[in-house]
Design a protein around this nucleic acid. Structure first.
Lengths: 208, 208
DNA sequence: TTGTGTGAATCCCTTCACAGCG
DNA sequence: CGCTGTGAAGGGATTCACACAA
């Protein structure tokens, strides 16, 4: 249970979890580090090392029990429970995310939608009414919101973040193309599609 | 122009480019590695090391000329020209991406939209008509498409990828939650929002 | 004097190799 | 015998520190 787990390890743990779900769907009961590695574009030693940071779940000579390891990974990643999420920004990105089925399948539940556009405030998305930004603090407090999905223009992002942090938000999935300033106890993940496109054009350009 | 540039360096180069655009907007003419570092959550030594892989653009005692370095970064990242992009999948994600202004600002031009849904085929999005999947090869050939934005269900993704690769596609921005199999000369970037949410819940869970 | 460019040192992640348990 | 768990080795990225150019 040591601290300081690198981000690359966490990404791999997510992969292992998805692989385990596939394997379980195939009716298998055990799996080796080697098979997990094959499905995740890594090595057997890496799988064992990754898991060893959190305990020893395998049986020597046998491998890992699929259901057992899956449950442990859910716990480790913190997705063995429901996370209350607010969607900030009811534009096109927000709309796409709102209906993204993968979120709910991992226990991320959208309980509030906020937008600054007077024409959108009050409209219903499914069972949720779009709220104005002034209500951010009260929504976080009354609904127990821990995560923000921030899909607003760059110039509004920091201000909203400051208010969310003040109201006790714990993590932000940030779609705005700026680096949010937050205290160290708040987690931020940036989604930056332009950067990923640039990684593609770089890779293609470099090899001629 | 050495080979083997790590992905982390490329991400930082993208940051530097955005910072330079901001700085240029402020009317500044030169910038130091230290200021670039402050804006990008890294260190001055890292900035200099990153840039040194591609040449020496700075002046000792003075710093970097903003416009000069910006142009060099555009070249390095391969965004000093227009990239023809096809959007595969006209669902919610596709719709959000289609209107995402940041793409065009970096020279990524969507020249084709493809969807398998008979109800969508033939519909117009802006000036583009939605095409059926059968036309993938001919669209790539006739329009000079180099990049795919792949926003289709997981079970369709590999098959479409195989056909695109056969028709000469060079890079894929993949939203499907599977690991695409492609030959080594094709670049793939995965967008995986569930994984990023899991990184958030992990970070929050681990610090109690 | 200032701030780059870069070898050297350091740090951290990955891989190796094998002891040891089932 | 098979496969995990792990200390040790290896490799690659970051940081340091300073020579040197403007």
């Amino acid at each position: 249970m040591s601290r300081r787990i690198p981000a690359s390890t966490i990404r791999r743990l997510s992969h292992y979890l998805r692989s385990l779900e596939d394997i379980e769907g195939e009716g298998r009961e055990t799996v080796s580090s080697e098979e997990l590695a094959d499905r995740g574009q890594t090595t057997a030693a890496q799988v064992r090392k990754d898991l060893s940071h959190f305990g020893s779940f395998g049986k020597r000579g046998l491998g890992y029990r699929v259901d057992e390891l899956r449950v442990r990974l859910l716990e480790i990643l913190g997705v063995d429970r429901v996370w209350k999420v607010a969607l900030i920004g009811a534009g096109r990105i927000g709309s796409a995310l709102f209906e993204y089925p993968a979120f709910e399948s991992r226990g991320y539940e959208c309980v509030a939608i906020v937008d600054a556009d007077p024409e959108k405030i009050g409209a219903m998305w499914g069972a949720l009414r779009i709220r104005p930004p002034e209500e951010i603090e009260s929504l976080i407090g009354s609904l127990g919101i821990e995560l923000f999905i921030l899909a607003v223009p760059a110039q509004a992002a920091q201000q909203i973040t400051d208010r969310a942090v003040g109201a006790g938000i714990k993590g932000i999935l940030n779609f705005a193309p700026i680096r949010l300033k937050v205290p160290s106890h708040v987690a931020v993940e940036d989604v930056n599609l332009v950067m990923q496109l640039e990684a593609l054009s770089f890779a293609i350009t470099q090899r001629g």
